[in-house]
Design a protein around this nucleic acid. Structure first.
Lengths: 215, 215
DNA sequence: AATAAAAGTAACCATCTGGTGATAATTTAA
DNA sequence: TTAAATTATCACCAGATGGTTACTTTTATT
């Protein structure tokens, strides 16, 4: 009888699966989710498309596998955990601004994340929805702490952060794709980005001030 | 010799062109820009796809014709013109909030506009770019007036409005497609929408206050 | 009513799509 | 070294794709 798993230099299931997943990522970045198709994956990976069906049960399964190994939010989680400790830092205005600023910078630099964010607002997809929910779950701890913080204030902290995060998403996608301005501002220039970040910082600052905190 | 243009009840060029353009709109709303294809247009319109090539030189030309007859911003222009008069109303915080609120409501209700906004951040397209620039041009007058208004303040009005408008776009698209929450808020519920609008109003109000205006 | 231009269709083509069944190459265990 | 299980490819299928060519129907004029 032969052994179960092959680990040879030519035939290697796990390595091949990874190659297929990687091909999905490369196509996504270069051409967007609309162009993730079995024939293209086969061409890009240099493998037979049959393997997509053998190993993932079809394109959907492969896409699911790809999305599940994307770990944007896990990186953020580490930050929240403050390097291993599970103690959440104070939800100060500086902390919030840092969070938003990092979000902005990261999304701006990551073509992959841009495509995934776009994907998420383009089609209904179970795995993408799960990814979105996962992210919500991640923010939950921050918001629970913040809810207490803003409890007796006139500020709707969640609504405010939803606005600011959303704006970052849209502005980056708009700048990266259309290349045109928004209200006369182009965030793909250093000056435009600084203006937006500064405005974000002011809005957060005023939100805290309005709530009665000088933090 | 026969006449140039046919206007019969069966053969009618202009009417047919309109039918093709309408088909593009219907497909866009139902299935998104990715599914605007010659065969589908032919099926939806009940016409031969050959006509797309005859009358518009191809799919691109038809799509261009479709986009050019979309007049979202023209509606807004009327509002700015205050019913024929070209005098621009005062750029008060109430005026700005109304503008944003209307933007929100309109986008939220118009599946067509949602698809076009999404289209604009999904692919590079000359006509879409022109549409975006046209919109910028429309806002120009408001901003020029506002620039003077906020000249000696610490407020970057353009950056602030860019943030607020962008957030509306993203939140609506996110809610309509993904259906999931953002920071715990679901703008497709009445409660969620009210929270976001209220937060927008507060942010605008504070922006004016920060600039030294109690308007 | 005849006719030529204009308007519109249907059939076809090459290419690309997702998906499968037969077959070949590699690997490992006996 | 050989044989069977695993890994992988290739050739093929039916259907959809964009695009064209040959053709028919309607219309307006004479």
């Amino acid at each position: 009888m032969a052994r179960r798993v092959h680990q040879g230099s030519v035939y290697n299931k796990e390595r091949t699966k990874k190659k297929l997943i990687d091909a999905v990522g490369r196509i996504l970045i270069r051409e967007g989710f609309q162009n993730i198709k079995v024939n293209k994956i086969a061409a890009v990976s240099g493998l037979s498309k049959k393997l997509i069906y053998n190993y993932f049960g079809g394109l959907e399964g492969l896409i699911k596998a790809y999305l599940e190994q994307v770990d944007f939010w896990k990186i953020e989680e580490q930050k929240l955990d403050n390097g291993g400790k599970s103690a959440l830092p104070e939800i100060s205005k500086d902390f919030m601004f840092q969070l938003l600023r990092d979000d902005f910078e990261y999304l701006y630099e990551s073509a992959e994340m841009q495509k995934i964010v776009l994907w998420g607002i383009s089609v209904k997809n179970k795995t993408l929805r799960e990814l979105s929910d996962e992210r919500e779950e991640l923010g939950k701890r921050v918001f629970e702490k913040a809810d207490a913080f803003f409890e007796n204030s006139q500020v709707d902290f969640r609504a405010t952060v939803a606005i600011l995060v959303s704006s970052i998403y849209y502005m980056v996608l708009h700048a990266k794709t259309s290349g045109s301005r928004m209200c006369g501002i182009d965030v793909s220039t250093k000056e435009g980005k600084e203006r937006v970040l500064k405005a974000l910082e002011r809005l957060i600052g005023q939100t805290y001030k309005y709530a009665g905190y000088a933090l």
